[in-house]
Design a protein around this nucleic acid. Structure first.
Length: 275
DNA sequence: ACCTAGTTCGATATGGCGAC
DNA sequence: GTCGCCATATCGAACTAGGT
């Protein structure tokens, strides 16, 4: 107990404590990302669509969040942010401390036991998704002295959810794999592959993954483009590598999904990267 | 002349809805 | 679980603007 390896990393103003989840959880959750901010520095960051459902178990002060489905925003403690196809804003008073989980959409469907379409473009208080046990868990995590032990507590909690949660349809799971392998594949081709009608596939995929397949493909492609551009690629190169027709097309997608042009996005520290 | 950044526009693929 | 209807989103194509 508590002797699991935890890797500490200075992120410049933030500290990160990273641990590996139980092997049974790893297909859905690559790491536990504990974080704390030694100084109280107010932060305001743009949030972008991601490949994952983000869970923030907040052990510090509440923070303010605007999401695509609620642009006025409100204050949150610990929350689950579902799949998004738009941008939002994260505003923190500083002094943050907590654990972030980036869960694959189908993993979130199983672990949280709710239709992912209910979380699309919104954030929901952690207890609103998991019930009263969730508050007790946050309190317990807050009282646990070490990061390794906190991750142990999370392992036990999530493994129980994994045993009892709904399992995604194999057709939906296959559609998710196909989209990740080639995010430009047409919905008609995915439907033919899994043996469902286009409408039925879209309906079930949206219910279990949170976004319709085409929109999910757009988000996956956008994230890939962000990766390439962050790595120093030019706009034209990133566009062609990601299957955008041209740089103009990439530019339009950036405006639609992030609310700003690629150069604005990369020029400023606008993005809230998954930790 | 060439490159990068960004806009506009029309054909058609896609998604929401509801009947079956 | 499928299909028809149809508004809308998507994306291919052709642009403009500005910098070197």
């Amino acid at each position: 107990m508590g002797d699991r390896p935890v890797e500490f990393d200075d992120q410049g103003g933030w500290w990160l404590a990273r641990g590996r989840p139980h092997p049974a959880l790893r297909p859905f959750l690559r790491s536990y990302d504990g974080y704390w901010e030694p100084a109280v520095v107010p932060t305001r960051m743009r949030t972008l669509p991601t490949r994952a459902t983000v869970v923030l178990i907040n052990l510090g002060p509440p923070l303010y969040l605007e999401v695509p489905g609620d642009v006025r925003g409100r204050e949150y403690g610990s929350f689950v942010a579902g799949m998004h196809d738009g941008h939002g804003m994260y505003v923190s008073p500083g002094g943050q401390r907590g654990i972030q989980l980036d869960v694959t959409p189908l993993g979130a469907y199983t672990l949280f036991g709710v239709p992912m379409s209910h979380l699309t473009n919104v954030a929901v208080e952690w207890s609103g998704v998991l019930g009263r046990g969730a508050d007790a868990l946050v309190e317990r995590l807050g009282n646990t002295p070490s990061w390794g032990e906190r991750f142990d507590v999370l392992d036990r909690f999530l493994l129980r959810r994994l045993e009892t949660g709904p399992v995604p349809d194999p057709e939906v799971a296959r559609a998710w794999r196909l989209l990740n392998a080639d995010f430009t594949v047409s919905v008609a081709d995915i439907a033919a592959d899994v043996g469902w009608s286009r409408r039925h596939l879209t309906h079930r995929f949206r219910e279990q993954a949170g976004l319709p397949p085409k929109v999910m493909g757009r988000v996956l492609r956008f994230r890939r483009a962000v990766e390439l551009l962050t790595g120093g690629a030019g706009l034209a190169d990133a566009a062609s590598a990601c299957g955008y027709y041209d740089q103009a097309h990439l530019n339009r997608e950036f405006r639609a999904l992030s609310g700003c042009t690629p150069t604005e996005l990369l020029g400023g520290q606008l993005e809230l990267q998954p930790l």
